[in-house]
Simulated scan of single mutants.
Amino acid sequence: MNTWFWRCVVVSSWLALLLWCSYWWQRSVAIALLGACLIACGAGLQLGVQMLMMRAVLRSRGQALPAASVAWRAWLAEWRWAVRIFGWQVPFQEHAEVDGPPPHRAGQADIAPQGLVGVVLVHGYFCNRAVWNGWLRELKARGIPCVAMTLEPAHGSPVDAMVENLDQCVKALVQHTGVAPLLVAHSMGGLVVRAWLKQLSASERAQYVVHVVTVATPHGGTWLARFAHRQPAVDMREGSDWLCQLGQPPLDVPFSCWCSSSDNIVFPLNLATLPQAQLHQVDDAAHMQLLFDARVWRYCLELRGQLQAAVDQA
């Protein structure tokens, strides 16, 4: 559903731009260019409003604000990522990268997936598996088994409804590798992981997950979700009934939480953390930007290497 939604947004935006310029170009070049600029900058303006709201909320709660220069750079970077992700990858590249391991190439030995710690990639709200295309390419290049699913149903249903997609994906990978994988989840994806873990027994958790890394996940909800009136966004309201029922993750599954004080979606910052998790906080990355931050990638790669070493020594 997200794929088609963003395709409609992109096509409608280009059509509106074409119609506006066609009508006004002969009448007033200035008005034509002004309208074209507003259409083209719509995403940036929306992100800018979110940044201003984030800073206002942090100020009202007496929390530290990222420097204005830091927030400015994060806004510009998030704008670039938003155009790339929602203007191209999500609407048109959902299946551009297949899951790994990589296909056999002439002159190379096949990579046996048995005994390799795989990586399951879980996307967030209003996205699909295409946000992980870069991760999938890099993981496959290293011979690491990896999978990314598109969570459905996307809108109008609670977070719990997406658990089945994740469950099938994880179990398929474990059947392929024989060992529990590392789960990396962005934004709402982290809540889907927690809802999935809640349905598993202790023995199933030991079989299907070795560690969870969440990136900009609203573990305590987010202030911005108060403007939402449909599921699953309602579940992500700060202190929502669903979050209260979800409770804390089981202690037998290690969590690492990455969050940013410049996050324009999940704020205040403490809402992106868990009490028992390893906390990794940065100040200079916005919501989608954090997913592609080199520090997050290096951490996940190193963590996966440590988990693999533990499997090899067992």
Rank of each mutant, 00 (worst) to 15 (best):
residue 1 M to V: 11
residue 3 T to F: 02
residue 6 W to A: 01
residue 9 V to Q: 07
residue 9 V to W: 08
residue 10 V to Y: 03
residue 12 S to Y: 00
residue 13 S to G: 15
residue 17 L to H: 09
residue 17 L to P: 01
residue 18 L to T: 09
residue 20 W to G: 15
residue 22 S to R: 11
residue 25 W to P: 01
residue 33 L to A: 15
residue 36 A to N: 05
residue 42 G to E: 05
residue 43 A to E: 06
residue 55 R to S: 12
residue 59 R to A: 15
residue 60 S to P: 01
residue 60 S to I: 03
residue 65 L to H: 06
residue 70 V to Y: 06
residue 74 A to I: 03
residue 75 W to Y: 09
residue 75 W to K: 03
residue 78 E to P: 06
residue 81 W to P: 00
residue 95 H to M: 00
residue 96 A to D: 06
residue 96 A to E: 02
residue 97 E to H: 05
residue 97 E to A: 14
residue 100 G to T: 03
residue 101 P to H: 01
residue 104 H to L: 15
residue 112 A to T: 08
residue 114 Q to F: 04
residue 117 V to Q: 08
residue 125 Y to V: 10
residue 128 N to F: 00
residue 130 A to M: 02
residue 136 L to C: 08
residue 141 A to E: 12
residue 142 R to K: 12
residue 149 M to C: 14
residue 156 G to I: 08
residue 159 V to T: 13
residue 164 E to G: 02
residue 167 D to R: 02
residue 171 K to C: 04
residue 173 L to Y: 03
residue 174 V to L: 07
residue 177 T to Q: 02
residue 179 V to P: 06
residue 183 L to V: 15
residue 186 H to Y: 01
residue 199 Q to H: 02
residue 199 Q to N: 03
residue 202 A to C: 04
residue 214 T to L: 04
residue 219 H to C: 10
residue 222 T to M: 11
residue 225 A to E: 08
residue 226 R to C: 11
residue 227 F to W: 14
residue 229 H to Y: 03
residue 229 H to I: 06
residue 231 Q to K: 13
residue 233 A to E: 07
residue 235 D to I: 04
residue 236 M to L: 14
residue 239 G to K: 07
residue 242 W to S: 09
residue 244 C to L: 15
residue 255 F to Y: 15
residue 257 C to W: 02
residue 258 W to D: 09
residue 262 S to T: 12
residue 274 L to C: 14
residue 278 Q to I: 07
residue 281 Q to Y: 00
residue 282 V to T: 14
residue 284 D to S: 14
residue 288 M to K: 00
residue 293 D to E: 11
residue 297 W to A: 14
residue 301 L to M: 09
residue 301 L to W: 13
residue 306 Q to V: 01
residue 307 L to I: 04
residue 308 Q to S: 01
